[in-house]
Amino acid sequence: MSFLRHISDKPWIPDHRPTVEIHSGMATRAATTKRGLVLFLSVVTVLFLLISIAYLENTSLPEWKPLREPQLLWYNTAILAFSSLTMQYARMLAQKDNAIRARQLLVISAILAVVFLYAQVFAWHELLQQRFFASTNPAYAFFYLMTGLHGIHILGGVSVLILALGKISNDNNLDAVADMTRLCAIYWHYLLLVWVVLFALLLVDNYMVNTFWYGMCRS
């Protein structure tokens, strides 16, 4: 626990070591942006965690009617997983200094992500056609909310990726390509993970969860 050790320092005692040894004050740009991304993803985690808890809490209400399983989402999940795979491949290529192939794979990942978004919208369209609106019951409300928020995050990721691709398209700075690809890969995998968790939540037969939460939250 280095954090605990840090905060038990007695800073008033003069430290005669060279200052560079005490704290070098050097941080690479890559490390900084990575930390920024990780912190951002923590924030997003809280967001989806709270929605999940709210969802579970709602399933314990007596009026709750579970969602009818939308088959289409299995295909969408596969598309997103594939996008993550190509992203991972891009990352490996970038690390091996193959910037041109890495850029191509980044483009493919972005396209796959857009396809996923289109497929999600299509799933919405199907549901709406069958007259399952957000107002139909809370299960659908949560479905639209979760998929919508997740979709917005994918959209944001794709936008940033396109901007970044524009910036590095003529750049032969291999480090920059590698750094960017690494950040994108982290983000992509993370959103895949979020999606899998959300999808699983939507799929769970609520019975078990129900009884557990009912005991916890209701008097």
Partner: peptide
Amino acid sequence: QARTEGMTM
């Protein structure tokens, strides 16, 4: 990340 040299937490 950006604390200067010698500036511990």
